[in-house]
Amino acid sequence: MAEALSLDDLRRWLEHFADAVVSQEATLNQLDSATGDGEHGSNLSRGVAAMRRALADQSFADAQSLLSSVGMAIVNSVGGASGALYGTVFLRLSDAGAGVTELDLSRLADGFASAAAGVSELGRTTPGDKTLLDAIHPAAQALREASAAHLDLGTGTDRAALAAETGRDATAAMAARVGRGSYLGDRSLGHIDAGATSMAQLFRSLHVATASR
């Protein structure tokens, strides 16, 4: 089994994520309605539709051009925080793919570490604020640890997905400290964050694409 994701693998990852977002749109909206405007699923569905068009309309010389096109498609099609944050994730991740057509575990770890830092900077958030950072931060750490331990790609992406899902579930016990949810104070307790939910799906889709090669 190849220990790196090809451009075709990256496309399969993003297509799987897009399918998941569309199928979970109502659930994501429902989660978001507890602490936000109730549109996270709808907004992200619009973003992945634009992403699909970008992937279908272009050929790519390297992983950077593919991922940056995805990031810009989302930024240009989704308003508000979701578009900016998801766009940042893919634009930061794209730096790890400069000049290469495959992403191994080390490059994925570097890219997602940069993506998590970008989300933190843009959203002015830290882990524990009840945002999508609570999913991407532990997932990026899991990738870093898997790379340092020289684990195989499938194991590394599975650990990242599990870390993101654990982070997602932990948001239920957090009080929102940023965004619209922060106005609710303790009333935001007991609700899983919608952004962390979609971000956990991004990592689960990454593992599915890795395992299905």
Rank of each mutant, 00 (worst) to 15 (best):
6 S>Y: 06
10 L>E: 00
10 L>R: 01
11 R>D: 07
11 R>T: 05
12 R>Q: 12
12 R>P: 01
13 W>I: 05
16 H>E: 11
19 D>Q: 09
21 V>Y: 01
22 V>R: 12
24 Q>M: 08
25 E>L: 04
26 A>G: 03
26 A>H: 05
27 T>S: 12
29 N>V: 07
31 L>D: 00
31 L>P: 07
32 D>T: 08
33 S>R: 14
34 A>R: 15
34 A>P: 02
36 G>D: 11
38 G>F: 11
39 E>Q: 12
42 S>L: 12
43 N>Y: 09
43 N>V: 10
44 L>I: 14
44 L>V: 14
45 S>C: 06
45 S>H: 06
45 S>T: 13
46 R>Q: 14
49 A>Y: 04
49 A>C: 04
51 M>V: 04
52 R>G: 09
52 R>E: 11
53 R>M: 06
53 R>Y: 03
54 A>L: 01
54 A>E: 13
58 Q>V: 03
61 A>T: 14
63 A>T: 09
66 L>N: 05
67 L>C: 09
67 L>E: 04
68 S>M: 06
70 V>S: 03
74 I>L: 11
74 I>T: 05
83 G>R: 02
83 G>M: 01
86 Y>V: 01
86 Y>P: 03
86 Y>T: 00
87 G>C: 01
88 T>Y: 00
90 F>R: 00
90 F>N: 00
93 L>A: 07
94 S>L: 00
95 D>S: 09
95 D>I: 07
96 A>E: 10
97 G>R: 08
101 T>P: 05
103 L>F: 09
105 L>N: 09
105 L>S: 11
106 S>G: 14
111 G>C: 11
114 S>Y: 05
114 S>C: 09
115 A>R: 07
118 G>W: 09
118 G>H: 10
118 G>C: 08
119 V>P: 02
120 S>K: 12
122 L>V: 13
123 G>V: 06
124 R>Q: 13
125 T>H: 07
127 P>A: 11
131 T>E: 08
133 L>F: 10
136 I>D: 00
137 H>F: 11
139 A>R: 07
139 A>H: 08
140 A>L: 08
142 A>F: 02
143 L>A: 04
143 L>G: 02
145 E>P: 01
145 E>V: 10
148 A>S: 13
151 L>C: 09
152 D>T: 09
153 L>I: 15
154 G>T: 13
155 T>A: 11
156 G>L: 10
156 G>S: 10
157 T>Y: 10
158 D>S: 15
158 D>T: 11
161 A>Y: 13
162 L>I: 15
163 A>K: 13
164 A>G: 10
165 E>I: 04
165 E>S: 15
166 T>E: 15
170 A>G: 06
171 T>N: 08
172 A>L: 08
173 A>K: 11
174 M>C: 06
176 A>E: 02
177 R>G: 14
179 G>N: 11
180 R>A: 04
181 G>W: 01
181 G>R: 08
181 G>C: 11
182 S>P: 12
182 S>A: 15
183 Y>H: 15
183 Y>S: 15
184 L>M: 07
186 D>R: 14
187 R>A: 13
187 R>K: 15
188 S>P: 10
190 G>M: 00
192 I>W: 01
193 D>L: 01
195 G>I: 08
197 T>A: 15
198 S>P: 08
200 A>Q: 04
201 Q>R: 10
202 L>C: 05
206 L>F: 04
207 H>N: 13
208 V>A: 14
208 V>W: 07
210 T>Q: 02
